[in-house]
Design a binder for these strands. Structure first.
Lengths: 169, 169
DNA sequence: ACTCCGTTAGTCAGGTTTGACTATTTATTC
DNA sequence: GAATAAATAGTCAAACCTGACTAACGGAGT
């Protein structure tokens, strides 16, 4: 939740935007780093507005429907910095989904278990390939670091999973 | 949410239990693999009961307060297996918290950024140390695999973070 | 015999998240 | 030029999660 605020504040710090723009950017460019959905973004924006961290102005362009343009306030910038330092210093939680299944691996015949994990491995490899194809972003080191981070962990995950599938043979 | 159901069904498949027992086991033994909270477990149990996947019986021992004992049903076992295969085959989402901050690293003076990440690294190392100290569980390979998985990724994370802190110097 | 405290066993209000939906405008196809 | 698709810009009810709270019991100490 703090992360979501941080993300939106950060994007608005770079440039005032309306909701759709924010959501599009997140979906198209940040899907590797966050999984926040559209409706959530609007909910968070409401909360930020209620807290005085962002302001909202109606804007009409041509005869398209009016849109809400959000801009970060002074308090918002202060909060942004506070959140930034806080989340940077915190150890990431790194609670990965999918490990509960692993725990109950013994309930499946060995061969079926291996097949499931092989399928998981294939999906993982595909995801990693898609990841490795995207070029460096170039917008400062931060964004690139975040993408690199995910990649490093995906690779570690893949290598480990390969070993497991092998061991199950 | 599927994962939470899977976990509870799996635990109940091994042995009928009451809510407190389940929660205690999760908190004491599975905190490395899941972060489900007590109240959530009760909520999930209610849903499972509503779906006919588990049954609930009142039980009184001595004159202690009565407790609800949950047991998995036939349908529950079928659903367990379905969920197990499904989550095993799915690539884990691996969306790690903390990377949003990374994206905005440039907003901080380099030295402060480095200090924050160094602090994160320290916390991570501590967590890893705690992890490495727990012995093998021995209850079949599944549980051990899950624990190993987390460890492998924590190590990869640590190594990467070390490199980043170094690079920022 | 009384108080304090930890264990047992939950409940609940309130906040968060999201899938599904609405509604308008612009572009495209037939 | 009518119908269809796609982009624009959100809203809302329902589901989900959790921090904080309740309440009874047993045992330890005094």
């Amino acid at each position: 939740m703090d992360e979501r605020s941080l993300l939106l504040l950060g994007l608005l710090k770079a440039q005032s935007q309306h909701g759709y723009q924010l959501n599009e950017f997140i979906e198209k460019n940040l899907s590797r780093v966050t999984d926040m959905k559209k409706a959530t973004a609007y909910a968070v924006l409401d909360r930020l507005k209620a807290g005085g961290l962002i302001s909202e102005t109606m804007e009409q362009e041509g005869n398209r429907p009016p849109r809400k343009v959000f801009a970060i306030t002074g308090e918002g910038e202060a909060e942004f910095e506070r959140l930034l330092v806080e989340t940077l210093a915190a150890a990431d939680r790194l609670v990965l989904a999918g490990d509960i299944g692993l725990m109950f691996l013994d309930h499946l015949p060995r061969e079926q278990a291996r097949a499931c994990l092989a399928q998981r491995l294939a999906a993982l490899e595909e995801r990693l390939a898609a990841h490795e194809q995207t070029p460096q972003h170039g917008h400062g080191i931060g964004v690139d670091l975040a993408v690199e981070h995910v990649q490093v962990l995906l690779r570690a995950d893949r290598d480990w999973l390969r070993g497991v599938v092998e061991r199950l043979r």
